[in-house]
Write a protein that binds this DNA or RNA. Structure first.
Length: 336
DNA sequence: GCACAGGTAGATT
DNA sequence: AATCTACCTGTG
């Protein structure tokens, strides 16, 4: 199979080495896990990546461009493999973008070789991007962490929280400050002082039972009304999201845009990150800036930019968007 | 104190 | 159909 898991510890252990079929390292790894396409991965102080998606909770340690040491706190290797979308050749996909005739795109590709679009459960993508409206990534992560800690189901029993890693003494402790830790100064909702449990994001069924006030308490602000509205809508329509994910792109997008709080941009994010539709081309303020400043499309409106993107970048426009976004964020962090 | 943040929806021109 | 504006709230 694409990606094999070789156990490196005892029978009960959850630690494995993930052999990637396609290289994922350096800036591409960081940008894939923490570049605004998902909001539950974070870089720990020891250099490991800790994250949750669906039923997966994992700590990843890069060993080589094609090897990740993966400690699974919850979920299966197959789940992790699917989340990382290692069955697709992301270098080949990037090479299929029009970088030979687009110098700026070529620059972005060279800066983040191997950048991926992760596969997230569509319901989680919808929830996260409903929270994203006019918020910075740090704050979206905060909201999502609170939603999981207060309203999500525990993913692993408390005793399961210390991974056994037998090739080093006592390493693995850091796996425990995982995920539901929401930073200093945030008293409520957490497990006081003790080892944090790993929680999944609440399902939409679970969210239907959460009051708008409780959602606001998770720092959602006006987005709480949108989340509550979507929860009410979906509660009466089991399978609606999954059916939507299976529809052709245009039809799926039309359905999503009908949800409260979901416009063109969020619908495209849900389809790109939650339904594997690489043709979806979300147009946000960053992309608007990129197109104005680097493609000379000053004054174009979002709908025009979206059309340009689909035509210019083609069926993998969403991947191009992620590269452009990554480059622009890096430029913003390090001017000059 | 004030603008701004990976937007959306409803009102106004 | 293009252009405002309110909507929440943490951060600089």
């Amino acid at each position: 199979m694409a990606l094999s898991f070789r156990r490196i510890s005892s029978v009960r252990s959850v630690s494995s080495v993930v052999h990637l079929q396609h290289p994922l390292a350096g800036p591409a790894l960081a940008e894939t896990l923490d570049g605004g396409q998902c909001f539950r991965w974070r870089l720990a102080e020891d250099g490991s990546w800790q994250g949750v998606s669906g039923q997966v909770a994992a700590t990843l340690r890069p060993r080589s461009p094609t090897e990740l040491e993966a400690t699974l706190h919850a979920g299966t290797p197959a789940d992790l493999r699917a989340h990382l979308a290692d069955d697709l050749d992301w270098h080949a996909l990037a090479d299929a973008l029009p970088h030979r005739t687009d110098g700026h795109l070529a620059t972005c590709l060279a800066a983040f070789p191997g950048l991926r679009i992760l596969r997230q459960p569509i319901g989680e993508a919808l929830l996260c991007f409903l929270c994203s409206a006019t918020k910075q990534i740090v704050q979206i992560k905060q909201m999502v962490a609170l939603l999981a800690a207060r309203h999500g189901r525990p993913l692993a029993p408390p005793g399961h929280c210390h991974p056994i890693v037998d090739n080093a003494r006592g390493r693995g402790r850091e796996g425990c400050q995982l995920l539901d830790d929401i930073g200093p100064g945030d008293a409520a909702g957490g497990t006081p002082g003790g080892a944090a449990e790993v929680h999944a994001l609440p399902t939409w069924e679970e969210l239907a039972g959460v009051s708008e006030q409780a959602l606001r308490a998770c720092l959602l602000g006006f987005r709480a009304r949108h989340v509550a509205g979507v929860a009410r809508f979906l509660a009466e329509r089991p399978g609606w999201l999954e059916e939507t994910a299976a529809l052709p792109y245009a039809e799926a997008k039309t359905r999503l845009v009908g949800l409260p709080g979901v416009g063109e941009k969020i619908a495209d994010c849900v389809l790109l990150f939650g339904a594997g539709r690489l043709e979806a081309f979300p147009v946000d303020v960053w992309i608007l800036r990129v197109m104005a400043q680097r493609y000379g499309l000053e004054g174009w409106r979002p709908a025009q930019i979206a059309h340009f993107g689909r035509v210019h970048f083609g069926p993998l426009a969403g991947l191009a968007q992620q590269y452009l976004f990554a480059w622009e964020r890096q430029a913003a962090r390090r001017p000059g």
